[in-house]
């Protein structure tokens, strides 16, 4: 799950930084000349910077391989179901709300008034995909449900006083 991966990665790096700061704070009570420290740690910086840039570069390229914007490659005779989604203050108008497991779906999301956010939540209330619902523009979410159940659509972009009531349901069957 993406959320767990993001959380763990963040936690690891944040803890690492915290430890470094704590060590430096602890060691700051000792007193020694600046010159040797400067030479030593400037040298270390080169290694550190190279490592950091490499990690960032690799992570960046790795995560850019598959983007949610790209049209997935569908198998033969497997035309995706096109669903028109229109956001209005404060509700979702969807041309279809019942789907099958394994059925490739394209939600064409737009809005008639202000900007909304189209977020799909699974049965455990974990968000699995989203896009912005904007007036004059149509954004397409590609998704194939793998589990049956009742999914929820929540509004993810603040759109007015009933923003949090802007919830809809879709069902996915076997």
């Amino acid at each position: 799950m993406v959320q767990t991966a993001a959380w763990v990665t963040s936690l690891v790096f944040m803890s690492l930084i915290l430890i470094v700061f704590a060590v430096v704070a602890w060691k700051s009570r000792e007193k020694s000349d600046y010159e040797p420290i400067k030479t030593k740690w400037n040298k270390a910086r080169k290694v550190y910077a190279t490592t950091l840039v490499t990690i960032l570069l690799v992570a960046c390229i790795y995560t850019l391989r598959e983007l949610p914007y790209d049209l997935p490659i569908y198998g033969e005779s497997q035309d995706p179901t096109l669903v028109d989604v229109e956001a209005v203050q404060f509700g979702w108008i969807m041309s279809e709300t019942e789907f099958k497991v394994g059925e490739p779906i394209e939600f064409d999301v737009t809005s008639t008034d202000v900007t909304h956010g189209f977020g799909i939540y699974d049965e455990d209330m974990t968000i699995i995909a989203q896009t912005q619902a904007m007036p004059e523009y149509t954004n397409t979410v590609y998704i194939t449900f793998t589990k049956p159940g009742t999914y929820k659509i929540l509004c993810m972009e603040y759109c007015g006083l009933a923003h949090h009531y802007m919830v809809s349901e879709i069902t996915v069957t076997e």
Partner: peptide, 25 residues
């Protein structure tokens, strides 16, 4: 310290695939 550790979740969220489920959370 606050600045540096604050940068980490920012970078994570700026990743498009992560943002797909983290944006506006």
């Amino acid at each position: 310290l606050g600045w540096t550790i604050g940068a980490i979740p920012a970078i994570v969220d700026a990743t498009i695939v992560v943002n797909h489920v983290m944006h506006n959370t």
